[in-house]
Design a protein around this nucleic acid. Structure first.
Lengths: 224, 224
DNA sequence: ACAATAGTGTCTCTTAGACATTATCAG
DNA sequence: CTGATAATGTCTAAGAGACACTATTGT
């Protein structure tokens, strides 16, 4: 390697980990208290330094598994958001932060990490408040337009009611069911089945089931 | 700095530099033959290694001024696209490439660099063919939605005909003038004036002039 | 029957797309 | 006047948004 070393910039990967809590009917963001200084004990996005030759996706999974305690197989999809480059964003020295998103399957979760509702994320270490604020519209924009993201968040099968809940969590307002149904009808690879899920314990008409025809999970393109 | 050095990944910045050629009625991409190995002599996107603590925008300007010979004040706007992380994309070793866009004012250009029409970019060094292919839709998507990008490309004032040319170059098909006019009417900060520009030497009705009310150039947000 | 939840038909308004027509220049 | 270029009125189709109404459950 003939390239400079000392002068090269460090690269970290910070992950906005999303999980849909069907019972609470909201999308949660994974945050973990920092183990080390700086900001020891304060909540932060899970992040790691990118290893030499490491893929962004691999580093992201390393962050999510290591700092959130999520099993690797629970990570259903990942993708890239944007890069933050303020030299002073890390007190240890100039460090690039490449923000990624990841979706996890709630069924495969151990307990332990902290999950905060997307509205109501606590104050975070570093510039992570800004990262969350800047990236939130990008996440909302991905819903129903990025199949890997949507499938990763909602799972292989889901009901119309869950789709409504996720949409409300991400975009901030709840669509009319008929309109969301039309939107979903136009999503490639998503199919409206004739099945109905079980009704809620409180009663009410059982909701319809939607299913991905292709395997939309396990894509999570990073870097294209 | 307590962070690892040898193991840190190198970061380069590669710039898709766009310039509108009003006479040729197309958008051109700046490419420069590489001075050094690898790929010496082959055309490539202008790129530099990111310095420690350097902002992405500054590195991008360094690449454009250094490798394309464009004056710094000719760079009207810059922004971020996406990051490419294949470890083998640079034969010298694993190097991240953060793709940026930059727009330059054609009036402030020296000659020398090579400009290729967006359709008809030659084969480029490294994985730059793929970078161009992947980023082109992102550029088309920015037009009329990112005021800094659009103003950077078209300048402070421009005609409807030029807007049609730029749209055709970026998106691949030419909108109907009436429809593009309605699109532009809805762009915040863009105003339809009553002035007409000079007609072409060949004759024809003189086109209308559009003007940015706010100073939309010189924004070029990178990293937000 | 009633409360709770979900699905659907349909009306309106906005936007996108497509032309045909009209307007203004040089020669 | 003719050829060239540009602007605009308008028709149609598609999509977004908003409700009202119907359907299916548990108690």
């Amino acid at each position: 390697m003939d390239a400079p070393r000392i002068e090269s910039t460090l690269v970290s990967v910070d992950v906005l980990t999303l999980r849909f809590d069907a019972r609470a009917r909201t999308v949660l963001l994974g945050v973990a208290p920092r183990a080390l200084d700086p900001f020891a004990g304060e909540p932060a996005l899970p992040g790691v330094l990118l290893g030499r030759g490491e893929r962004l996706r691999d580093a992201g999974i390393r962050a999510v598994t290591g700092k959130l305690g999520v099993a690797e197989r629970a990570v259903t999809a990942t993708g890239q958001l944007t890069t933050f480059d303020e030299p002073s964003r890390d007190p240890r020295g100039p460090t690039l932060s490449i923000a990624l998103w990841a979706t996890v399957d709630p069924a495969l979760l151990d307990d332990g990490p902290t999950w905060a509702p997307l509205d109501g994320v606590p104050h975070l270490a570093f510039d992570h408040d800004r990262i969350v604020a800047d990236c939130r519209p990008m996440l909302a924009d991905r819903l129903w337009r990025d199949a890997a993201f949507t499938a990763g968040l909602l799972g292989r099968e889901f009901t119309t009611a869950q789709a409504l809940d996720v949409t409300e969590s991400l975009t901030g307002d709840r669509p009319y069911p008929a309109n969301l149904g039309r939107t979903m009808d136009r999503v490639p690879g998503l199919e409206r089945t004739a099945q109905h899920a079980a009704a809620l314990p409180k009663g009410g008409r059982p909701p319809l089931v939607w299913r991905w025809t292709r395997d939309e999970a396990a894509q999570g393109s990073v870097g294209r």
